[in-house]
Simulated assay, not measured.
Amino acid sequence: MKNAFSYPLAAAASAIMLTAAPIAHAQEVQNVPAAKLFPYLEAFLKVPAHERRQVKVSYRLRSANNAPIQATLVDATGGRLPLSVDERGIFTKLPTLAQLQAKPTVELKAAKDSKFSLNMSFMPVLRSATEYEARELAGVVAEGNTVIGKAGGILAMAAPKMTGIEFPKSESGVAVFGDGRTQPLPLSDGMPVFRPDQLKGAVKVRLAKPPSTPDFNSKKK
């Protein structure tokens, strides 16, 4: 989760710092407005679904001591819906637009004295593979920039333009052109990157290994 629109959300994080009040039990519970815990999610979900098919938004809640987290969406009637959080602190289940518009809270339960930081990222929706159509990747990059512009609010004004897709843990790769010739993909922080504007005419991208999680890249070289 390392693209240019991955921001530490200080305001939201401060809202979920669990206080160190002296209590007898081993866990503490705090209720946080869902809009604060998931900033920009409502704006993202308001973008028509067909315009964001290839983009998703991801939220990661991390604790300094890697304390396990339990999160539950609580609506105005008291209805409760567990929100899954994986071992990396990433929410694997998020509220729907209708749920967010009802202004629910999120009940966070964690070990006593836990303190958290929250990050959000816009991510490409791509399978892990060793071969991709260059046209598909170019479309994902274009859609990502459009969606970030529409849903990112004031942060989008400061975000660099996404220039390509990076492939963590793939080690190396090549762009394949229509005439059969190939060109090595450049590396960014050790990851091969496909930048459509720099490899015009490419028809496929082939990687040495499947990537762990393809991500956006905003660097120009």
Rank of each mutant, 00 (worst) to 15 (best):
A26C: 05
V176H: 01
R52H: 10
N217Y: 03
D197C: 10
G153N: 14
K220P: 00
K36E: 11
K2N: 10
V176G: 02
L126Y: 03
A98E: 14
E51K: 11
G190N: 00
N119H: 14
S218G: 09
I148T: 09
A67H: 14
K112Q: 01
H50N: 15
A110C: 02
L108V: 05
E107T: 03
V106F: 10
N65V: 15
R88N: 11
P39C: 13
L73T: 01
G164S: 07
N3S: 15
V125A: 01
A151R: 00
T163D: 08
K115P: 13
L137C: 07
A158N: 09
S172V: 01
K169E: 02
S212V: 02
R195V: 12
I16Y: 13
K220Q: 06
S114H: 01
P22C: 09
A76P: 08
L199V: 10
V57L: 06
A43K: 12
R80I: 08
G149F: 08
E87G: 10
E87F: 06
S6L: 08
V74A: 06
G79Q: 11
K204Y: 05
V140I: 09
S114E: 11
A13V: 12
S6K: 05
P68Q: 01
L81E: 12
R195D: 14
E131W: 03
A49T: 13
F216L: 07
T19E: 10
A49L: 00
L61G: 05
L18C: 00
P48M: 05
A35Y: 01
P196N: 09
V193G: 01
V174D: 13
T72S: 10
A142P: 00
L199E: 02
A24P: 06
L187F: 03
E136Q: 15
S121Q: 09
K220H: 07
T72L: 09
D75K: 05
G78A: 12
